[in-house]
């Protein structure tokens, strides 16, 4: 069936990107995978009815599902210990990787809305307007959430605050 083939092609082409977005939003690979699979199932069920970009539709669904899940006060995705180095090492590739991981861990400490804004803006490379449209908020909200999220990241990544070792939700 042509529609099914189109869907398969869509999933093969875009599911990895959706999964990675979901991972950064949830901080948990298993949850991200389950969430993306659920969203793709919804896309599959409505494939013929989606007249906008299926990817935009799916990405919106992923973001909404992830932010709904973590909207609760204080409920944070867990940060795997393996992704949070105890201390900076020599300034080499290993340290660069560790810093990347620390930043991802810090991202997981933000509010769901701030995290969504930053992931959409800096991972999915959406414009402020597209991010606002996807989140159903004003562009000004995207700007303010982005600024606050970046400020929070700076604080979390301050050397005085390292190491990021907790696995407890705050």
């Amino acid at each position: 069936m042509a529609a099914d083939e189109d869907f398969d092609e869509f999933v093969r082409g875009r599911s990895l990107s959706l999964f990675r977005t979901a991972y950064f939003l949830t901080g948990d690979a298993g949850h991200a995978e389950d969430l993306v699979q659920d969203v793709l199932a919804r896309v599959y069920a409505r494939w013929r009815l989606i007249r906008t970009s299926p990817e935009a539709y799916a990405r919106r669904a992923v973001v909404h599902a992830a932010t709904n899940r973590w909207r609760a006060r204080g409920r944070r995705p867990e940060v795997p210990m393996s992704r949070t180095p105890d201390r900076p090492g020599p300034h080499d590739h290993a340290q660069q990787v560790a810093e990347h991981q620390s930043l991802v861990a810090a991202l997981a400490q933000l509010s769901p809305r701030q995290r969504a804004v930053l992931v959409l803006r800096y991972f999915d490379d959406l414009s402020e307007a597209d991010t606002a449209r996807l989140l159903g908020c004003a562009v000004g909200t995207v700007k303010s959430q982005s600024a606050r999220g970046l400020a929070a990241l700076r604080r979390l990544l301050d050397p005085n605050d390292r190491p990021l070792t907790t696995t407890e939700p705050r």
């Binding site: 099914d4 869907f7 398969d8 999933v11 093969r12 599911s15 990895l16 999964f19 990675r20 991972y23 690979a29 298993g30 991200a32 995978e33 993306v36 699979q37 659920d38 793709l40 199932a41 919804r42 896309v43 599959y44 069920a45």
Partner: peptide, 18 residues
């Protein structure tokens, strides 16, 4: 980051139910 499971198969299975 790579998904560990079969996203396509799972999506189609769940999608048919839906």
């Amino acid at each position: 980051l790579m998904p560990s499971g079969d996203l396509l198969g799972g999506a189609r299975r769940r999608g048919r139910q839906r």
